[in-house]
């Protein structure tokens, strides 16, 4: 891969993870546990889809094959999606929704914080705006993990179950592959070793405050999203999300 192809790949990863998590959260419309949470969930979802759009637009310019951001979202199949497996997992109960958000937010926050200093100016600009939003997302999901973990017996059991259920998807957040290494070397992406340390540091700290236990670092991990091998869920997400542009291919405006 050329340097530019690596960057394109990296941008699609950022974009796709934002997009798919935003999509998952929007499934919760009218179904959140309180009106305040309706507002908060949609707020996070909006931020994520907005960030995804920024990343897609940059990716589309680099790819430069006539596809715009919308085409990247609505006309790629599952194997072309580069999102983390974590974000495509179903909402399940609110503990799973929140554990998924928390694991992602910790990774997202430290990644964006590093990308603010990227040698690529466009990346740095997008990240500078996004990291403000991600800071709020992380504060919110951390607070909820603590409330659930140190709340009632039932909430503790549920959030602990959610941590256990989703732990196998955390490895992908912090295990670098050749793209991550190349991006770091190019002065764009974060130091993979640093991200791993920061991620564990924050997750363990919040888990301790929440009286929760986290899995082992060397536990078996389910990975593959970054190279387009997904869980069965992604195909269904795309079937819903891409329905209109696929069903009406002649439509050029909506």
């Amino acid at each position: 891969m050329t340097q530019q192809e690596v960057l394109q790949e990296y941008l699609l990863r950022l974009a796709d993870s934002d997009m798919i998590l935003g999509q998952r959260l929007s499934e919760l419309t009218g179904k959140a546990p309180a009106v305040e949470e309706e507002l908060a969930v949609m707020n996070v979802a909006l931020d994520l889809v907005g960030q995804a759009r920024n990343w897609y637009e940059y990716a589309a310019e680099l790819i430069n094959d006539g596809r715009d951001a919308d085409k990247l979202v609505f006309l790629r199949d599952a194997h072309e999606y580069r999102n983390l497996l974590m974000v495509e997992q179903p909402n399940d109960d609110y503990a799973v929704t929140m554990a998924r958000q928390f694991f992602f937010d910790v990774w997202h926050y430290f990644t964006l914080k590093s990308l603010v200093n990227a040698s690529d100016e466009r990346v740095a600009t997008i990240a500078a705006k996004a990291v403000k939003e991600a800071t709020y997302h992380l504060r919110r999901s951390s607070e909820w993990v603590k409330r659930m973990g140190d709340g009632t017996e039932e909430s503790h059991r549920r959030i602990q179950d959610a941590f256990n259920l989703l732990w196998r998807f955390t490895g992908e957040l912090i295990t670098p592959d050749e793209v991550d290494h190349a991006m770091f070397k190019a002065g764009i992406g974060p130091d993979p070793e640093q991200i791993k340390q920061d991620w564990f540091g924050m997750v363990r700290e919040v888990a301790a405050q929440a009286t929760l236990t986290v899995g082992e670092e060397d536990a078996w991990m389910y990975m593959g999203g970054k190279r387009g091998e997904h869980t069965e869920h992604l195909g269904h997400i795309l079937a819903v999300m891409q329905f209109l542009p696929r069903a009406y291919p002649d439509a050029t405006t909506w």
Binding site: Q23, S26, E27, T29, G30, K31, V35, E38, L39, M42, N43, A45, L46, V49, G50, A52, R53, Y56, A69, D70, V73, F74, V240, M241, F243, L244, P245, A251, W254
Partner: peptide, 24 residues
């Protein structure tokens, strides 16, 4: 909510999400 997951473009999806958020 029945359509927000199926909005046909990024722009329309963001608009609908913002509208739903306003309603909450």
């Amino acid at each position: 909510g029945n359509w927000v997951t199926r909005a046909p473009t990024l722009k329309r999806k963001l608009q609908l999400m913002a509208k739903i958020q306003d309603e909450a």
